[in-house]
């Protein structure tokens, strides 16, 4: 047993230096040279300030923007930091709802979301992804159906022609990679950024 202590300690130290410092620091250096923008979090700038990350969803509540999916992330309660309150799209505390399929709280929440959505576009089928929370609470995407579903509301709020808006959404639909991998989707942040740009210009 004592005979094994020297190799145990020596190899633990050597591998900590190699895999715990040299490897991550080396990768950080290499990533900064090869893919600087992505290594730093794919941040998006507008007028000199960071407005978000291209990969991270953000909370949209206003009528004039396309909305992302419901988010279950929490944040500290401003009144009592030991407690947590709902803070959708909190990008420093990713989480899902973890509500089970039989939980009445899940079904009640989905019903409330559905009723609110149905009022904005009567007659249209409410898409599943707009009433369900994502695993991370930071899902940047919605399905193309979910984007088109919101066109009437956004068009009305912005005083835009629905057909123009529909074309803009269509331009933002990302298909499957090689036609096979992944699911068709619309990045909500990118779409809204474009929407602002069009309105501004």
């Amino acid at each position: 047993m004592l005979k094994q202590i020297r190799p145990a300690l020596v190899l633990l130290v050597l591998f900590t230096l190699l895999t715990g410092l040299a490897y991550p620091l080396g990768m950080t250096g290499l990533a900064a040279v090869l893919f600087p923008q992505k290594a730093a979090g794919s941040l998006v700038m507008r007028d000199g300030t960071v407005v978000g990350s291209a990969l991270i969803g953000q909370n949209f509540a206003g009528e004039a923007y396309f909305h992302g999916r419901p988010s279950a992330t929490l944040g500290p309660d401003p009144a009592d930091p030991s407690k947590s309150v709902a803070a959708p799209y909190n990008a420093s505390n990713s989480m899902g709802s973890n509500l089970g399929p039989s939980n009445p709280a899940l079904i009640d929440r989905i019903k409330a979301e559905k009723d609110a959505l149905a009022a904005t576009n009567p007659g249209a089928a409410v898409p599943m992804d707009l009433v369900t929370t994502s695993g991370s609470g930071l899902d940047p995407d919605i399905s193309p159906e979910a984007a088109f579903f919101q066109v009437p509301r956004v068009a009305k709020a912005r005083g835009m022609d629905e057909a123009v808006l529909r074309a803009l959404v269509a331009a933002h639909v990302d298909g499957r990679l090689f036609g096979i991998i992944g699911e068709p989707r619309v990045n909500v942040f990118a779409l809204n950024l474009d929407l602002d740009r069009q309105a501004g210009g």
């Binding site: 990533a31 893919f35 992505k38 990350s53 950024l193």
Partner: peptide, 30 residues
């Protein structure tokens, strides 16, 4: 790891970034 950074996974020692969202809210990105 290099492949993942190419796909968009961050690799930085910098602190969290504070963004001002399109709706003007504050989003701290870890």
């Amino acid at each position: 790891a290099l492949f993942l950074v190419w796909q968009g996974v961050p690799q930085t020692l910098g602190p969290s970034v504070e963004a001002t969202t399109l709706e003007g809210a504050r989003q701290v990105i870890a």
